[in-house]
Design a protein around this nucleic acid. Structure first.
Lengths: 148, 148
DNA sequence: TGACTCATGTCAGTATCCTGACATACCGTT
DNA sequence: AACGGTATGTCAGGATACTGACATGAGTCA
């Protein structure tokens, strides 16, 4: 191993990617025993908080395209985790809801993920956490400003 | 659109993913005119700072597998951006270095990416930036502690 | 020296996600 | 009522990254 990180690690962007990568890996490890991917978990969590979300809304919330979310929803419907009406009650929107099995597995998954997040925040004071929260939100807003 | 973000957006993990997603999208937009992907840019930047890195080391630095980095390096070698010896001078490690064309395009790419990062940090004081830096590093360290 | 462990490069197969495209349904204005 | 703009769900194709596996070379230790 040569010397790693001379100037790149001084970049907030690089560190942001590193943190997100580490968090994703930790979540994958935590969710693997349950047979869930991170995207599937995000989808279930979104549905628990906002029942009846459309596929496109779920896609935006999970940061994937609506096409990817569509195949994911079909699989989760087949597995009995979510339910969608066969036909759209209004327009083309197919409102998705948690099935009992989905609610059950989400409960376990949520506990695992919460443990990961707690571990991630250990050593940070509440003040530091809220400061980081504000900083990240500021970054998101600034980046979205022009990128549309 | 139903109501979005009730509790999920209060999660630092979710916000971290959102920020990383926004940053990646902004970087993709900035690098697309140059015909570079974010991973390719990361690879070039790593090589500029640490010439002679092996494929595996580059993979770790860019947060991809060494297999993915390998195909990426083959393409970049074909495009004349990097050079690798035909045979390993020692062991199996193939030290990679920037070619003149790679150094040239990296110069342009680096300017674009720097502009994105500047935009991302607008509205944050230097104190807030370094506090966020410390917080992200703390998260990475905590997550890596057990995940091995 | 020989056995063991680890890291690297590479090949093959698979999975995941994305881009492009189309038809349909709502909403606004004219 | 008719139109254009927007949003949704879906299909097809391709790009990208990953997992699994193998052989090779270096380092360690008995």
């Amino acid at each position: 191993m040569s010397q790693d990180g001379v100037a790149l690690e001084t970049s907030l962007g690089y560190l942001l990617k590193e943190a997100a990568s580490a968090l994703r890996a930790a979540m994958e490890d935590a969710l693997r025993p349950l047979g869930l991917t991170v995207t599937q978990y995000a989808c279930l969590e979104l549905l628990a908080q906002c029942p009846g979300l459309s596929g496109s809304e779920l896609a935006r919330g999970a940061f994937v395209t609506r096409q990817s979310m569509n195949v994911l929803l079909q699989a989760m419907e087949r597995d009995g985790y979510v339910t969608r009406p066969a036909e759209a009650p209004v327009g083309k929107v197919l409102p998705t809801r948690l099935a009992p099995d989905g609610r059950r597995i989400l409960e376990k998954a949520s506990a695992e993920v919460r443990a990961v997040e707690v571990r991630m925040l250990e050593g940070m004071t509440a003040t530091e956490q809220s400061a980081t929260f504000a900083a990240l939100r500021s970054m998101v807003d600034s980046l979205r400003a022009d990128g549309t």
